[in-house]
Simulated assay, not measured.
Amino acid sequence: MNIAILSGKGGTGKTTVSTNLALALKANYIDCDVEEPNGFLFLKPYIDEEKEVLVDYPFIDDSKCNSCGKCVRVCQFNSLAKVGDDIMLFQKLCHSCGACKIICDKDAISYKKRSIGNIEKGIFEDIKCIRGVLNVNEPMAVPVIKEVFNNIETNFNLIDCPPGTSCNVVTSLKYANGAILVTEPTEFGLHDMKMALEVVKLFNIPFGIIINKDDKKDNLIKRYCRKNDIEVIGALPYSREVAEIYSMGNILYKNAKYKEVFDNIAIKAREVLKWN
């Protein structure tokens, strides 16, 4: 069972919800926000395993290449370019699709591997934690996200998705059985929540909303959810105390008051997302 935690924008409290709800649900924590995987800053797991994420890239044998340019024309990602009589490769644009090797009738193209990131595994209390870390200056996170899912177990997993609605989010949702969207009661929060909802609906999985920085009023998020028959799973209060605990890198679930909040959210989440 994989439950995805996502948001239409950054800064809504997605990682706050993910890390604390993982403890409330006793679920493994899976950090797929590989460009900024900060969940481990709060859980602080003991990391006992680490491995590189490798991707293929084309290597051109100049002794066989006649610079015909077929590989350049077939590449949909502009990772190859013909400059004079030379074929230039832009490694970081390559999607390792293999089209250039297939079309080369001189057998001048082979593949080598390069590292674009790491997978780290660890333990915090009684839950397993896994995260992907994309190397600095690497533009494509999807291979790292896919490798994260190659390393998870078929247990109960809480997936901390990347923010927004990009292909990184779509890749994460492919593995999800349910989704929780974290938002905040602002116009920006509502706008980006709507975008995230459209993505989630494409996968035909159950979902619900958690409101962060809730003002305890009948705000625009609650009105929108009520109008559109969307379940609100729970809310986190707009509180200076929450900000202080978070700023020190501590877990809200260790505070008795907020432990009760997340335990109640966990109960409602099980009802809304329909798992046993």
Rank of each mutant, 00 (worst) to 15 (best):
Asn2Asp: 00
Ile5Pro: 03
Gly8Asp: 00
Lys9Ala: 06
Thr15Phe: 10
Ala22Val: 12
Ala24Met: 03
Ala27Lys: 06
Asn28Gln: 07
Asn28Leu: 08
Ile30Cys: 03
Cys32Trp: 09
Glu36Trp: 10
Gly39Glu: 13
Gly39Tyr: 11
Phe40Met: 09
Leu41His: 12
Phe42Gln: 03
Pro45Tyr: 02
Glu49Leu: 10
Val55Lys: 09
Pro58Tyr: 05
Ile60Lys: 01
Asp61Thr: 02
Asp61Glu: 07
Lys64Glu: 13
Cys65Val: 00
Ser67Glu: 07
Lys70His: 13
Lys70Trp: 11
Arg73Met: 12
Gln76Gly: 07
Asp85Ile: 05
Asp86Thr: 02
His95Pro: 10
Ser96Val: 14
Ala99Met: 06
Ile103His: 00
Ser110His: 12
Tyr111Gly: 11
Lys112Arg: 08
Arg114Gln: 08
Asn118Asp: 11
Phe124Lys: 14
Asp126Gly: 01
Ile127Arg: 14
Glu138His: 05
Met140Gln: 13
Ala141Lys: 13
Val142Tyr: 09
Val142Thr: 05
Lys146Thr: 02
Phe149Met: 00
Phe149Val: 00
Asn150Ala: 11
Asn150Met: 04
Asn151Gln: 01
Glu153Val: 00
Phe156Cys: 03
Asn157Cys: 09
Ile159Pro: 08
Asp160Ala: 05
Gly164Ser: 01
Ser166Val: 05
Val170Arg: 04
Val170Ser: 03
Val170Pro: 01
Ser172Gln: 05
Ala176Pro: 04
Asn177Ala: 02
Ile180Leu: 04
Thr183Trp: 01
Glu184Gly: 06
Pro185Ala: 04
Gly189Glu: 04
Met195Phe: 09
Glu198Ile: 01
Phe203Met: 10
Phe203Gln: 12
Asn204Trp: 08
Pro206Cys: 11
Phe207Leu: 15
Phe207Gly: 14
Gly208Lys: 00
Asn212Lys: 01
Asp214Cys: 14
Lys216Glu: 15
Lys216Asn: 15
Lys217Ile: 03
Asp218Gln: 12
Asn219Gln: 12
Leu220Thr: 02
Ile221Met: 03
Arg223Lys: 15
Tyr224Thr: 09
Asp229Phe: 11
Val232Ala: 10
Pro237Trp: 02
Glu244Val: 08
Ile245Ala: 07
Leu252Ile: 12
Leu252Gly: 13
Lys254His: 14
Lys257Gly: 13
Tyr258Pro: 15
Glu260Tyr: 14
Phe262Ser: 09
Asp263Val: 12
Ile267Gln: 12
Arg270Ile: 00
Glu271His: 05
Glu271Phe: 09
